[in-house]
Amino acid sequence: MILTDIDRVTAAEFAAGTGWEPKPEGLCRGEICVPAPTALRPDGTVDVAVAAARLGMPMVHDATHGLHALGPGSSSGHQLSTAVAADPELLDSDLNPFRLSRLHGRKVLLVAWSSY
């Protein structure tokens, strides 16, 4: 997740970028909530440093361009913390948004390929 202003990340933006929803009870994904009492500020923004530390997300900083990048959580020790498939927004071949959830109800063989 790229952060252009680390002090003004809303809860919705954090949830969209990481899959973890900041709530009063903690940082939640599905039924799992990680306690993080100070992560959600009263004004609805997220203390990203606190949230990242609780979730084991590394954060790197490019001072020249004023950017931060937040990596995925590593606290579970595995790439997957749930078998429920994530639902990223991809593009179809006409460059229209396409989410994998559109294929629910069918078996999906998701094959990664590239031009390289």
């Binding site: 995925p72 078998a83 429920v84 498939a85 959830s101 294929l103 078996k107 999906v108 998701l110 990664a112």
Partner: peptide, 24 residues
């Protein structure tokens, strides 16, 4: 993003997802 979400680190790689949206 499918790389870090699903574990693709080379190509071709694949995951299987069942009718309920669960990786099998």
């Amino acid at each position: 993003q499918t790389g870090h979400l699903f574990g693709f680190i080379n190509i071709p790689m694949a995951i299987w997802i069942n009718e309920d949206g669960v990786i099998v």
